[in-house]
Amino acid sequence: MGAAGNSAVKVEAWLKPLNRAPGTRCNLRNVTSYWSIFSVATASARSRKIGDSPMANATQREGEKSGKSDYINQMSQGPGTCQAKESSAGANQVSDQDLVADVLRKDRKATAEFVARYADHVYGYVRRRLIPRTDLVDDLVQEIFVAAWENLEKFRGDAPLRSWLLGIARHKVEDHYRKRLREVQFQDEEESAWDEPGSLPDFEGALAKRQAGQRAQEILKTLPETYSVILLWRYWEKRSLRDIAVQIGKTEKAVERMLARARQQFKKRWYERQSPARG
């Protein structure tokens, strides 16, 4: 048997499980046509003229016949059109409720739209909250979307879908904080006097300047992870000392001390970054 014969055997073997489904008329001849059409499609795509492909035209015509504002049509009618559709997405977007209903029906196109519409928001939020552990961002975002799918039936539409998703994201981020801080040895019993960190003279003034937020993110990246986590939890997530202490099973005093140390380190680095600029 030649190379072509071997390939045919491989393709038949690949098709075997698919053919078990009743009514699946899939054989080698179909696959041959599949690849013929694939060649036509990719050739026309290469020349960036999707509309010239007979198959693309057929699909396009069907989309037009339906006359419906189709979100995937909006997203991916080929290069060039997509960006324009996205920029005008606000006007044509399917409502959150309709989108959720379609995702729950396991419509793959709606699922794609769900990801395309909300991944940026969730990713941005998680990335800001996980500084300096940006290596964990992708996994956490994935966990959030899976959790969202598992709980999507509970979405009632009282709040925008984006807020609902960010709520899940917040829970996941706090789970991460809790886990990180529980691992840390707090100095509860330390009796030595704690020096209250003094205010550095230019910290307050620098806050009023532009790009203070960006600078803060850079500093958070350089702090020990525990310090970043406690600062983010307390000030970015606006959790009280008591809440944090309860969640990680430590005393409020211990959390307060840890937070003071974190603030001091933050301000020290803020000042260090400021100094060279002054010359």
């Binding site: 499609a41 990719t42 795509a45 290469r46 960036r48 999707i50 492909s53 693309a56 699909t59 396009q60 995937i72 049509n73 997203m75 991916s76 009618q77 080929g78 290069p79 997509c82 960006q83 996205e86 793959r108 196109k109 794609a112 990801v115 395309a116």
Partner: peptide
């Protein structure tokens, strides 16, 4: 490059 592929849409900035 073909149309109606979700993965194409994800690549658009």
């Amino acid at each position: 490059y073909w149309g109606h592929c979700p993965y194409v849409a994800f690549g658009k900035k």
